[in-house]
Design a protein around this nucleic acid. Structure first.
Length: 511
RNA sequence: GCGAGUGUAGCUCAGGGGUAGAGCAUCACCUUGCCAAGGUGAGGGUCGUGGGUCCGAAUCCCAUCACUCGCUCCA
């Protein structure tokens, strides 16, 4: 485990040293869990986006793209359930230092009373034997009725306090019920505090007549509210999908582990609209398809696994995660959720606009069901970097650090290196650079020894190094060095373009 | 928010009351020319910030800020 942490630290340091990721606002001591993508980072990120977009949008006739705004009408979040579900009242026990959701503490207390009722029933059924009628017992037995009354009172009090945001009374209720911390066994509680997991901001420059807005906590809702716009303008027929890449914001209580969990992050989402009743078929299809996308990159099939959810979110009836083996263990990389018609129905109710589809085959109107695939772009970035980071011991005893990034995703595809700075080699090298850079991101370097330049390119994951030497001037050949094997091959300049193109050709991966 | 740890050069770190250090990196010149480490020279730091103790603080004390890790949350 210590070794894993070590590798993770090295990856983080490597990201900074080679221009992949910087701490945000570093000159002001940084901002917690916020990071900037440097020159190589932004290239890798764009390449990941492109690889996803190609596979999801361009290669599916029935999936189209969208880029919806980060600002949305506040009612959106009412409809999606985020305004309620993203608001957690939290309370700490001062003795055990444990933090709990205040409402769950109370609910657990209620659950205990319910267990008592069950026990009463059990006892009674033994006593009455076959004549026992549970329904009748519950509605008539005075002890059960008392317990039920207690539950109802607690529930209504809690709901009243929570909906009014009356946190002091929530604490009072916990104290009245003498709810104790399961760890410390004491009722030494802090005040209840509200954690709003959505970022709030205002629209309108004058603060007195501005209205509250939220930064979107997921991109999906922009797709749902545009469902009809997209369907009508593209004349899509169900089943069809809408894909979107964009930033989302969550005020996580803790945001840690480098770019794995940030408050500002980027998602690549696709919502697939289907006939009600066909969700399991499509759930299976997308599970399979998305896993194939991941393994197509060749980063090792053992590094991925599914984690099916047992408890489901308020909108889902089936859910799985694709987990990746990060340096700190298997963690969620992508989610595939069967979201039923929860979202569209909720928007239909909140907006008063019909969000239905007329199915010509079935000759009926319905609110489509939705199958979602949602992958964290930053997590994908971290997955690629942490799995491609390699420290090697070479035969001559030297160490080499190389990023074995899948070539199609590498920020730089080829480095063009004149062996020396003289004898017209730089001019020749720049000539080659010109012929390649329109199709491939290339880098020219003439500083330092050739070995040093190779290692620098290894460290940023450049798949090919092209070295121009004196022989090049005579016969138009160069040496082509492969990043992973370090093998060199003498080839003619005319062949260069097709060799690189073959290596980074997307159909090699997704074909 | 609580607990622990860390802040010294671009990076990795040493120094623990008496003139601010090393390696790597950077820049210049020379040398070499296919796998990071040749030579000479140069630049770069109010030792996270503020206060205190002291003749004197990077060093001791107090406060504060930031980051890292752990706990609570995670659609």
């Amino acid at each position: 485990m210590a070794n894993y942490e070590n590798i993770f630290k090295k990856v983080v340091a490597h990201c900074k040293e080679y221009g992949y990721i910087f701490q945000s606002s570093e000159i002001y001591d940084g901002l917690a869990a916020t990071y900037d993508y440097g020159p190589n980072g932004v290239e890798l990120k764009n390449n990941i986006k492109n690889y996803w977009w190609k596979s999801m949008v361009n290669m599916h006739e029935n999936i189209v793209g969208l880029d919806s705004a980060i600002f949305m009408h506040p009612t959106t979040w009412k409809a999606s359930g985020h305004t309620d579900a993203f608001n957690d009242p939290l309370i700490d026990n001062k003795d055990s230092k444990k933090r709990y959701r205040a409402d769950i503490l109370i609910e657990d207390y209620i659950a205990k009373i319910e267990v008592k009722i069950e026990k009463d029933c059990l006892k009674a059924s033994k006593r009455f034997g076959d004549a026992f009628n549970k329904q009748k017992f519950i509605t008539t037995n005075s002890r059960v009725l008392d317990r039920q009354k207690q539950i109802d009172i607690i529930n209504s009090k809690m709901n009243a306090f929570l909906s009014k945001g009356n946190l002091k009374d929530v604490k009072k209720l916990i104290e009245e019920l003498d709810i104790k911390c399961p760890i410390s066994g004491t009722n030494n509680w802090t005040d209840v505090r509200q954690f709003n997991l959505m970022f709030k901001t205002q629209i309108g420059a004058a603060s007195d007549n501005s209205s509250d807005l939220y930064l979107r906590p997921e991109t999906a809702q922009g797709i749902f509210v545009n469902f009809l716009n997209v369907q009508k303008t593209t004349r899509m027929k169900i089943p069809f999908g809408i894909a979107q890449i964009g930033k989302a914001f969550r005020n996580e209580i803790i945001a840690r582990q480098f770019i794995f969990r940030m408050r500002e992050f980027e998602q690549m989402e696709m919502q697939f609209f289907i006939r009600p009743g066909e969700e399991i078929k499509w759930y299976k299809y997308w599970k399979d398809f998305r896993m194939k996308w991941h393994t197509s990159l060749g980063m090792g099939e053992d590094n991925y696994r599914f984690h099916d959810h047992e408890t489901l979110a308020h909108y889902a009836n089936a859910a799985t995660d694709i987990e990746f083996k990060f340096p700190f263990g298997f963690k969620e990389l992508e989610g595939i959720h069967s979201r039923t018609d929860f979202d569209l129905k909720a928007h239909q109710e909140c907006s008063g606009k019909k969000l239905q589809y007329f199915d010509p085959e079935l000759e009926e109107n319905y609110v489509p069901y939705v199958l979602e695939t949602s992958i964290g772009l930053d997590r994908m970035f971290l997955a690629i970097l942490s799995s491609s980071f390699t420290e090697e011991k070479l035969e001559n005893g030297e160490n080499r650090v190389v990023l074995n990034i899948p070539p199609i995703l590498s920020p730089i595809k080829a480095a063009i290196l004149p062996l020396t700075k003289k004898d017209n080699l730089p001019e020749k090298a720049r000539e080659i650079m010109k012929s390649l850079q329109i199709d491939f991101n290339c880098q020219y370097e003439e500083k330092d020894s050739i070995g040093k330049r190779y290692r620098r390119q290894d460290a940023i994951g450049t798949p090919y190094c092209i070295t121009v030497d004196h022989q090049t001037l005579k016969d138009n050949t160069i040496t082509l060095r492969d990043r992973t094997s370090m093998k060199q091959e003498r080839i003619s300049i005319e062949k260069l373009h097709s060799i690189i193109a073959e290596k980074v050709n997307i159909s090699r991966y997704l074909g």
